[in-house]
Structure formats: structure tokens, C-alpha cells
Nucleic acid binder design. Structure first.
Lengths: 119, 119
DNA sequence: CTTCTTAGTATCAAAGATCATACTACCTAC
DNA sequence: GTAGGTAGTATGATCTTTGATACTAAGAAG
């Protein structure tokens, strides 16, 4: 992760902070890539804790298997916290960890870009 | 894309701007997801125009086929500009469009998150 | 005793993404 | 005439992701 901010060239139209070197984008893609992870993170980060069944209802088209997979992967990467209540029928709550909450800025930038992009 | 900013709840530890509703994350994932697109965009956005062969050398492990595919997909989505020079041997240059340049903030947020995440 | 509930697992099939390899065009240099 | 360089295309194999379906546990309600 060698990165640094470059000063602008004389002929550039505007100062552009440049990230040099290689950000391990493949790793990042692993963390937040895939068909469902961005959706899951967005919900847990901006809407708060959710139960398994609530997520299934809220996310259109996701299957139980995939929901479990993706949540487990996110948990393993420290982005989602899983809390099991010892009840019957079972109750499991999922919430964003601090590490995930730190992604808010990225989501907001993404959102802003999308909005601008549409106009 | 119904979105709005929510005011904070009384018991929240800090004010958190919340993006409500559904950002079409699946669409965004289509645009910038996949194994190579983030890498390509990062290079073209922050390092500038590159020739086909330069990209192939710079991106470890990518095949010619995938490089072509991904560049074509990005071009189709208006994120990459393709300039062909009528020479032999051929010369083709790729560069980020304005729409792609608008993704800088997102990349920077992503980068900042990754750096913080590592510490 | 049967049914309902939630949060899963297990299994196999289908679809999609990626890879390896071989091939092309065209001009230049030897 | 042969090889080299660039930017591809074409093809089939494989690897990964995703989907559909059926199944489980354990108590509660009837």
C-alpha cells in the first residue's frame, strides 16, 4: 500500500489529488464485492440492526442460502456482528461493526456520484 | 432512488447522516464491480491515459481477453474513452471520462477506509 | 399429536465469469 | 521471405457464483 499525494502538473486544468501506487483493490473487491454485500452493508450501516428474516424480506430476490453466505462472509471480515438470542423460535440480529460504519463516507461518495451521474 | 437525510435520534452517540431508501447498489455493482474494473479505473483516474499493452503489463495476472472485455464494458458505460491511432502496429489509448473522474471521491474514501482499517 | 415459527444446512443444477490457447491483420526491419 | 510488434478475436474448458429445493431443530399453540 505505498500511497502518496502528488502535486499537480503545470498544465493540468485543476489540482487533482492523486493516489499513487497500488491500493489492493482486489482485496477490497473481495470484502465488498459480489451481488449482495453492498446492499447488506448499506442496510445495516444506514438503517441499523436487522433480524435475519427482516433482511430476507427487505432484499428483493435474495435466497436464504445466499443471505446466510454473505452475512457469514461479512462477519468473518469483521464488517458485521451477529447476535444470537437463545430462544425458540430462534432470533438472530445482525448489525454493522465500527469497521463497517467507517465505510459510510465511501457509500455517501458512491451515492453522490450516482445522483450526479443520473442528471 | 428515494433518498433523504435523517436527523439523529436522541440516544445516538453521534449525528449520523443516513441515506434512506434504496440506492441501486446492484446497478453500481454492475458498473464498478467484477475482478478488474476497480483496478482499471484506479489506474486511469489517478495515473492518467494508458495504452492497452501498458495496462496489460501493469495489471498483474490479467489476460488479454479480460482486459478487452472490461475496457469495452467500461467504455459502454461511459467511464472510459478509447482512442485509436491509425498506425501499424496499432496504438490504442484508454483514458477516464469525466464521469469516471467524478468517482475520485469514492476512491479516496475507499482508500482512506482501507488505510484506517489496516491500523 | 400436529402444525407453526425462525434461522438456518445440505445438495445438486444452472448460470456466469474467467482462463488458456491459438489465431488474425498490417507494416517494418532484417 | 521471415520474424517482430500491437491490439485485438475466437473457442472451448474450467472455476466460481448463484439459485432451487428439500430438510432440520426446538419450543409454542391448538
Amino acid at each position: 500500500m505505498a500511497t502518496k499525494i502528488q502535486s499537480r502538473k503545470q498544465d493540468s486544468p485543476a489540482p487533482i489529488p492523486v493516489i499513487e501506487g497500488v491500493c489492493p483493490m482486489p482485496d477490497i473487491a473481495q470484502l465488498i464485492g459480489g451481488k449482495w454485500k453492498l446492499i447488506l452493508l448499506q442496510i445495516l450501516i444506514f438503517q441499523g440492526t436487522r433480524r435475519f428474516g427482516e433482511l430476507r424480506k427487505q432484499i428483493d430476490g435474495i435466497t436464504q442460502t445466499m443471505l446466510t453466505n454473505q452475512l457469514r462472509a461479512l462477519e468473518k471480515d469483521g464488517l458485521v456482528r451477529r447476535k444470537v438470542y437463545p430462544q425458540v423460535p430462534p432470533k438472530v440480529e445482525y448489525s454493522a461493526t465500527q469497521r463497517a460504519m467507517d465505510l459510510r463516507e465511501m457509500f455517501q461518495a458512491m451515492h453522490a456520484w450516482w445522483v450526479r451521474s443520473e442528471s
